[in-house]
Simulated scan of single mutants.
Amino acid sequence: MHVAGRIEDYALIGDMQTAALVCRDGTVDWLCLPRFDSHAIFAGLLGTEEHGFWRLGPAHADDAEPPAATRRHYRGDSLILESEWDTPRGTVRVTDFMPPREGAPQLIRIVEGVSGRVPMRSTLRMRFSYGRVVPWVHRHEGRTIAVAGPDSVWFDTTADTYGEELTTYSDFTVAPGDRVAFTISWEPSHKQPPALPEPEQSLEATEDFWREWVEHCTYHGPYREAVIRSLITLKALTYAPTGGIVAAPTTSLPEDIGGVRNWDYRYTWLRDAAITLSSLLRTGYREEARVWREWLLRAVAGDP
């Protein structure tokens, strides 16, 4: 059984309109769709597994704690997360990312066999509205869809899936060179289904996006690798359609254990955004500053 980790156990991925947090054991415990300030479909970070999560990693006994990844890192200068497990049966890699949005928002997870033959399990428990709503999950033209009111989430994979206890499972084994992709896509429930995902093409496009963005960085001083990683994180907190910059992708986490300060940080706080802008401007990212200034002027326009 997975228990939500410490905040430092989570890695951030995102598409500059929302973000997900991935724990060391391969569990996505936080994701709001379609925007930073939308309701969460995975809110295990704030509660328990009953509030939604998506675990993808080596199979383990149901009563055992999922194993943490042996190592993990971001691929180069990108927001593509790679986690690797060394198991008695071999080594497996999971690549997690959210492609910069052109259509429906997507979270893509690609499992790759590195050595041996490793049994894997995907456990997907979608709970809408911060865990309050259990969606209607069914099959539609070969795809799995979860619907609740105005929201729908589509789940696509080539692996076999089955439902049990209001949860969607996939059990499969990967050998060297095997690649098995899983994608969830959000769409308003009254609209047509989102396009079928193309995980490999999306991975390439996401890597190209971040590489090109990092090339604009003008900083070449000490600790450049850490500076680049910080800039990528700040870019991930920028809401692309408007230029607003959220203080953090989460809400309701107390600043200290048992404390009462548990603000919603999914807003543009002027102080935080100003510090972010200072960092971006000093490293060559003037466009982000320009669009944030335009956002600010719109936000304060008219009678307050």
Rank of each mutant, 00 (worst) to 15 (best):
138 H>G: 14
186 W>D: 04
259 G>H: 10
154 W>A: 05
190 H>V: 13
158 T>F: 13
62 D>S: 07
16 M>Q: 04
103 G>H: 11
103 G>E: 00
287 E>M: 10
250 T>V: 14
265 Y>L: 12
285 Y>E: 04
253 L>E: 02
105 P>E: 00
173 T>M: 09
238 T>F: 06
299 A>Q: 15
194 P>C: 04
119 P>V: 10
267 Y>R: 09
233 T>A: 05
53 F>M: 02
229 R>M: 02
6 R>T: 15
166 L>N: 02
80 I>T: 08
300 V>I: 15
176 P>C: 03
73 H>T: 06
143 R>A: 11
187 E>P: 06
272 D>F: 07
27 T>K: 00
296 L>G: 03
144 T>K: 03
126 M>G: 10
88 P>S: 10
245 I>A: 06
154 W>C: 10
179 R>A: 12
258 G>R: 10
97 F>D: 06
17 Q>R: 09
240 A>E: 14
295 W>L: 09
196 L>S: 15
268 T>E: 10
92 V>C: 03
303 D>H: 15
196 L>T: 15
126 M>A: 14
180 V>F: 13
122 S>D: 10
203 L>F: 14
126 M>K: 06
151 D>S: 14
73 H>L: 03
240 A>G: 13
68 A>C: 12
208 D>V: 10
58 P>H: 08
251 T>W: 01
253 L>C: 13
158 T>E: 14
32 C>D: 01
13 I>A: 02
174 V>H: 06
146 A>C: 13
39 H>T: 11
15 D>C: 00
302 G>D: 01
98 M>G: 09
152 S>R: 13
72 R>H: 15
111 V>P: 01
10 Y>H: 09
55 R>W: 04
120 M>P: 03
12 L>I: 04
219 Y>M: 00
22 V>F: 03
223 Y>R: 15
239 Y>T: 01
287 E>L: 11
301 A>P: 00
194 P>M: 08
117 R>D: 10
51 H>F: 14
15 D>R: 05
275 I>Y: 14
106 Q>H: 13
37 D>C: 08
184 I>F: 07
211 R>Y: 13
96 D>C: 05
258 G>K: 08
232 I>P: 06
158 T>Q: 13
304 P>H: 10
130 Y>C: 08
10 Y>A: 11
297 L>A: 11
63 D>V: 08
74 Y>S: 03
215 E>R: 15
117 R>Y: 05
237 L>F: 01
57 G>M: 08
12 L>Q: 04
226 A>I: 08
235 K>H: 12
172 F>E: 08
95 T>S: 14
168 T>V: 14
